[in-house]
Design a binder for these strands. Structure first.
Length: 123
RNA sequence: GAUGCAAGCCGAUUUGUCGCCGUCCCGUCUUUGGGCGGGAAGGAGGAAAGUCCGGGCAACAAAGAGCGCCAUACUUCCUAACGGGAAGGGCCCCACUCCUAUGAUGUGGGGUACAGAUAGUGCCACAGAAAACAAACCGCCGCGAAACGAUGUCUCGGGGUAAGGGUGAAAAGGUGGGGUAAGAGCCCACCGCUCCUACAGUGAUGCAGGAGGCAGGGUAAACCUUAUGGGUUGAAAGAUCAAAUAGGCUCCGGUCCAAGGGCUGCUCGUCCAAUCCCGAUCCGUCGGGAACCCGGAGUGGGUAGAUCGAUAGACCCUGCUUGCGAAGGCAGGGCUAGAUAAAUGACAAAUGGCUUUUGCCCUCGGGCAAAGGUUACAGAACCCGGCUUAUAGGCUUGCAUUUUUU
RNA sequence: GAUUCCGUAGCUCAGCUGGUAGAGCAAUACACUUUUAAUGUAUGGGUCCUGGGUUCGAGCCCCAGCGGGAUCA
């Protein structure tokens, strides 16, 4: 099993991010807002994590949340390929809570989100 | 030993599994840009924070001077520079000592935005007679007039007076004596204040002597004056390379005998339609060139993106040395993050520190064991020097208080 | 990374170049009404974000901090 999360699996292109936010489908699963979009030209699934400065003031706490989100995605990203292994997507995970949550709280939510995205038919 | 204050320093460790970032090495693939796999060593701070100052660096601007704006403000020094720091001076507060009823000198500690109020303007509520070119409410003291209970009392008028009362944060040098009708720096002594001179000190200033009868309340963290400094912007600065697409420019070729447009589902066909310049002309046109259009090549700017800026520096450690000190000099050694939708981690366990409860021991303050809790503040974003603020817990040094022992 | 503004009653805001902190809404009580609402009268309610400083005196001036908002590609 591949548990890595290298740079080409992270979404960092300004253009792709703009496209994702303009055209992507979205849903809420507290404490996350999720955007995703099918990307035909991409070789892998690409993901971005966002924690707002408005929601969480301290840089230390923002890092705390982002690292746990990354870990949860890294350990469960295979769930995206369970239904249609060839379909690749761009995904944005946005943390919208004001409070910190532990890894034990975050991981089950991420698992739920990834299975839901995998089952969704994107037109 | 305990407690408190001040200064300085440290600010968790280990193991396992899975990862992230750049550097180097090896292998492999390759479109020579790089991709993939493996390995090695490295990877947040004392404040990385706040962005309160200063500098480097960069772009732009710039004859010089003045006005304006902003900042700073005892002195000397340190420094690349500073609003930072060191040493010193003045002032204020506290303690001790001395003397005494109020202070003095000395010692120690703490604080201090500490230039100018005699350059000018403004403000000083309420209370109070009066709040700034002083002022007469009560009071005190003469003078004049009237009355009467007649050498006094009271009333009125017109004066003198800042000693006393009362108000206030503040009432126009203080204390004592002389003086006076009563008083008053009116005069005198001491203290204070201002000015001048000598001496000591680089200087702030100190100290001594002399002169002046005292003019001059506070507020500049009110406007302001004086002196000094500041060009503006800020890495989102700036530099280099530059895909695709669409423009610009240049060149070549084609069309111009026709480009283009309409009719038609399409071809053929047919109809409409030909800008400018030069030359020739029988004035009908003809020839050449340009433009338009089509195709190709090159090239400039520049977007996405990439690289640099950007991590070896006013650097760190040790020793010697100069200086009271901040700091400087010399010698030796060291290399210590470099990301960019933004790495330095996640999970689990153990250990250590601190602490709570229970049990046992004992020199009554600790030790041991078990269980539990807690392990802070905080995340580089161009770099550096400071300042300020946050911080579980621990260590060192100095001072003060207290207890015990000697 | 840079710039800038705000913090006053439960809420929304005033407070002039410093002198005893106010308005509207809300709250409480009373009146009116069969009752409620509306209306009227009265009342209470303030660490002027925090700490320090200047001043006789600070919501206002100065310094430091805390919290919140906005702008700049």
């Amino acid at each position: 099993m591949n548990y890595k999360l290298s740079k080409n699996e992270r979404l960092h292109s300004k253009k792709s991010i703009k496209e994702l936010f303009d055209k992507g489908s979205s849903f809420f699963l507290y404490p996350f807002k999720v955007l995703f979009l099918e990307a035909g030209d991409s070789e892998t699934n690409q993901v971005l994590f966002s924690v707002s400065k408005r929601k969480i003031k301290r840089a230390v706490n923002r890092n705390y949340v982002k690292r746990r989100m990354k870990e949860a995605y890294r350990l469960n990203k295979h769930l995206l390929d369970t239904v249609e292994p060839d379909k690749k997507r761009h995904v944005a995970l946005i943390y919208v809570s004001h409070e910190l949550q532990s890894f034990q709280d975050i991981q089950p939510k991420i698992v739920k989100i990834l299975t839901r995205i995998a089952k969704t038919e994107t037109p």
